[in-house]
Amino acid sequence: MSTTRLLLLGVVRIFQPAYGYQLRRELLTWNVEAWANVNPGSIYTGLRTLAKHGYLQELEQDGAHRPGRTSYKLTADGETEYFSLLRGMLWTVDGFHPDKMQATISFMWSLRRDEVIAALEARISQLESWLKAGPYSERHILEDPATPNHVVEMFRITNARDSGELRWTHEFLDRIRGGAYAFAGEPADWEPYPGMVTHWGEIPAPPDRAPDNQD
C-alpha cells in the first residue's frame, strides 16, 4: 500500500490539479500494474481514500462526484506524507519489495542531490551488512537438523538480489556524483515531447532548508 500511496501522491503532485482519469492514464503509461502490482481499477478508489484521509483535496466539477471527472491536488498533509514516504523508501532497503525503490526513482528528483547521495551511501551500508551476514544464516540452516536443506536457497536467491542491487547502487551513486540527472533546486534536464498523454506542469518548488543555527 505504501508504494501505491507514493505513486498516487507523486503523480498528483506533478500534474495538480488533475482529473482522476488523467492521473490513471498517466500511471498506466508507467506500467505500474506490472511492477507495482497496482490494479488499474483501484486507482480511483485510492485517490478517494487519500482524499478521505485529508491528503488530497477533491475539486468536483459542477458539484458532481464522478471518479473520472473529479480533480485532485495535494493538501499540506499530503505534501508532508509524500516526502515522508519518499524519504522512508529511499533511505531504507526492503529486499522483498523492490517496487518501493522503483517508485522512489520516479520521484527522486524532488529531493536535493546531497540528500540522494547520502541516502544511497546509507543503502550501500545496509546491503553490505546483509551480505556479510548471509553465510552465517546459511550455516545455521545447514546445521539445523529440523530445517530442510533446500531452505538455504531462499537465502541464496535473496543474497543474489541484494548483490545485484548493491552493484547497481554503486554505479547509480557514481552517476549522480558525476552530475547526472536533475534534482530539486537544479534546472530540469528533460522536456516532455508534445504528444505525451498528459503534460507535466510546473514542478513544485522544493521546501526551503531550515536556516543554519547562528550564534
Rank of each mutant, 00 (worst) to 15 (best):
L6E: 02
L8H: 00
L9D: 01
L9R: 00
V11E: 13
Q16A: 14
P17R: 05
Y19G: 05
Y19V: 02
Y21G: 00
Q22L: 08
L23Q: 00
L23E: 00
R24L: 11
R24V: 04
L28Q: 13
N31A: 14
E33N: 12
N39T: 04
P40M: 04
I43S: 01
T49M: 11
L59K: 11
K73Q: 15
K73E: 13
T75I: 09
A76D: 14
G78V: 09
E79M: 10
S84A: 14
L86P: 00
M89A: 09
V93D: 02
D94F: 07
H97P: 02
H97W: 09
H97S: 12
P98I: 10
D99P: 01
F107N: 02
L111N: 08
R112D: 03
V116R: 01
L120P: 01
E128I: 05
L131V: 06
L131M: 07
Y136H: 12
S137I: 11
H140N: 12
H140P: 00
I141H: 02
E143S: 15
D144M: 08
P145D: 11
A146K: 10
T147N: 05
P148S: 08
V152T: 10
F155C: 02
R156P: 00
A160C: 09
A160E: 15
A160D: 14
G164K: 05
G164E: 10
E165I: 08
E165A: 06
R167T: 13
R167I: 09
R167N: 10
W168N: 11
T169L: 04
T169F: 03
H170S: 04
E171P: 01
G178V: 04
G178A: 15
A184H: 07
G185S: 09
P192D: 12
P194R: 06
M196W: 10
H199N: 08
G201I: 09
I203V: 14
I203H: 08
I203Q: 12
A210S: 08
P211N: 08
Q214L: 06
D215L: 10
